[in-house]
Design a protein around this nucleic acid. Structure first.
Length: 507
RNA sequence: CGGGGCGUGGCGCAGCUUGGUUAGCGCGCUUGACUGGGGGUCAAGAGGUCGCCGGUUCAAAUCCGGCCGCCCCGACCA
């Protein structure tokens, strides 16, 4: 008998959270480190998740009037130089292409040859190339608004990487819009932030706080940056989507101007907004447990997996036929506007091993079907959001009739659980001592999971923000948009403050 | 790039301080038998130039030097 493990993932979240995260990514076969430093290979299960994320968001973008387009991976170096703050923000993390050919070198290896007149950078974001095109396309107020989005890969040469959360190359979506008025651009910025909130809460089952970033956290070159912030199970915040109001900064730098109805020449007002494969990391850290991944049904690549229980060869055909029939029936059921995604796992492996594989991959519902179930025309149901002891038998017809309800129940349950977790770990704090105590672990050498979201008053002074960051590695995640104004006094300086802001440690 | 830890079959590790038979162990893998609502049992197998390069030595996984890579913490960031 093998050693009984209590959990499918070791270590547990409480024992070593960062290591647990890596083990889940690996055990669920989401992704792996690649031969290229800092980059990852996204495996089919992880990519399926991303495809679902992309599919839903793409529909939302279209519904709000946007169209997809594609712009080049390479950006002339001179483009980046046009917006001063933008340069400062991204220059340090750009990959640069300087040559276009390889030749045999003296040592037999290949050496770069054919130096480019102007180096190209691999896009860290596309404001500049897209802006260059907008400058050509936009002549008149009649050409506005321009509402485009692109799905692409980008490169940011990060010092430290983590699968999904921060990799050198990652996949994302970037929306870029241009408008005739400031008001319209501001509305667009907020509209897309709302889209992200809707997606995070109703599809990822991840409660988020919508808010505006402070100057320190603002996108380089933006007038204002908004974000949605989720709380992970180690109580750290993860920025899960950003929307930027760029004002006329980029249009001025790139000459995106148009003639108004009155005949004057004005610069357009632009926005940009994006979410990345970092969302997969958010999903993992919001819901998963010590047995591996837990997926919200609306984004799960598979809703129901059927595990045939086959004891002997003489029942094999019958069991498989029954399983396939159930799969067929489930495939006729609609959940969240599409067919239930179901698969019969007929692989030649031991039942327990298959079961654990799917537990670790986070499939919302597992059906175990053997001769006994067939005899009573029922299925044995296991839900990923419940313990293994809570499995139950249900008549086949009843399960087929209620599967969509069960999936929605799981979806809602995950959201409620995540919301309760966030609320338990969110505290209003009104004194500096309590604030410092809240964010200081008991064990300094190996910090336990501690802290959370602190709702505190802060006077808006960047120096104070920096001081807190230096002391505790805690930052202002955002100034919440939906909270009521509540005057108070800054916990550090005692100065008047119109509202509480969200402080937390962050990814 | 700083501080810490680590590189030994697919995965997880022991061995290294005190160099010396064919480098072990658990899981996994292959084959066979027995099992059968669950991370089985038994038996027989396959699989490693001990991260790389150099040095010391009769002899290096083990000692010395250099390099590379990974992980954690920090600075930077979606």
């Amino acid at each position: 008998m093998a050693k009984k493990m209590k959990t499918a993932i070791t270590p547990t979240r409480a024992e070593d959270y960062p290591e647990w995260y890596q083990q889940v990514v690996r055990a669920a076969e989401l992704a792996e480190p690649s031969p290229v430093r800092g980059c990852m290979v996204i495996r089919p299960w992880g990519y399926g998740l991303w495809e679902n994320i992309r599919g839903v968001l793409d529909g939302m973008f279209r519904a709000t009037g946007h169209k997809n387009a594609y712009f080049p991976l390479f950006i002339p170096l001179s483009f980046l130089e046009k917006e001063a703050e933008h340069v400062e923000g991204f220059a340090k993390e750009c990959a640069v292409v300087t040559h276009h050919r390889l030749e045999a070198g003296p040592d037999g290896g290949l050496v770069p040859a054919g130096r480019l007149d102007e180096p190209l950078i691999v896009r860290p974001t596309s404001e500049t190339v897209i802006g260059a095109m907008y400058a050509k396309w936009i002549q008149s107020y009649r050409d506005l608004p321009v509402l485009l989005n692109q799905w692409a890969n980008i490169v940011r040469w990060e010092m430290r990487t983590r699968l999904f959360l921060r990799t050198t190359e990652f996949l994302w979506q970037e929306g870029h819009t241009a408008h005739a008025t400031k008001q319209e651009a501001l509305e667009e910025t907020r509209r897309m932030l709302d889209v992200y909130e809707d997606f995070a809460e109703n599809y990822m089952a991840m409660p988020v706080i919508k808010g505006e970033k402070t100057a320190a956290e603002r996108f380089p070159g933006a007038v204002s940056t908004y974000s949605i912030e989720g709380m992970m199970q180690d109580r750290k915040a993860l920025q899960s989507g950003t929307s930027h109001f760029l004002g006329q900064n980029f249009s001025r730098a790139q000459g995106i101007s148009f003639q108004t109805a009155e005949g004057s020449q004005e610069f357009a007002w632009t926005t940009s907004w994006g979410v990345s494969t970092c969302l997969v990391g958010a999903l993992i850290m919001t819901h998963s447990d010590d047995d591996g991944l837990v997926l919200p049904p609306r984004l799960a690549p598979l809703h129901v997996v059927i595990l045939p229980v086959i004891h002997s060869d003489d029942v094999r055909a019958e069991v498989l036929a029954y399983c396939n029939r159930v799969a067929g029936e489930l495939g006729e059921v609609t959940f969240n506007g599409a067919a239930v995604r179901v698969e019969v796992d007929g692989r030649d492996a031991r039942g327990a091993e298959k079961m654990w594989g799917w537990v670790k991959k986070g499939v919302p519902v597992r059906l175990e079907i053997g001769p006994r179930d067939i005899e009573s025309d029922s299925v044995f149901v296991a839900r990923r959001d419940k313990t293994r002891k809570e499995r139950f038998s249900l008549p086949r017809a009843e399960f087929v009739a209620t599967v969509a309800t069960i999936l929605q129940e799981i979806q809602d349950g995950l959201f409620e659980r995540a919301l309760a977790f966030r609320e338990e770990n969110t505290r209003k704090i009104d004194s500096k001592d309590e604030f410092y105590e809240f964010f200081t672990p008991e064990n300094r050498d190996k910090p336990e999971i501690h802290g959370g979201f602190a709702l505190a008053h802060y006077n808006g002074n960047p120096d104070v923000e920096q001081q807190i960051k230096d002391d505790l590695n805690v930052t202002v995640r955002c100034v919440p948009l939906d909270a009521d104004a509540e005057p108070g006094r800054c916990i550090i300086t005692g100065e008047k403050s119109p509202r509480r802001v969200v402080f937390a440690k962050a990814y």
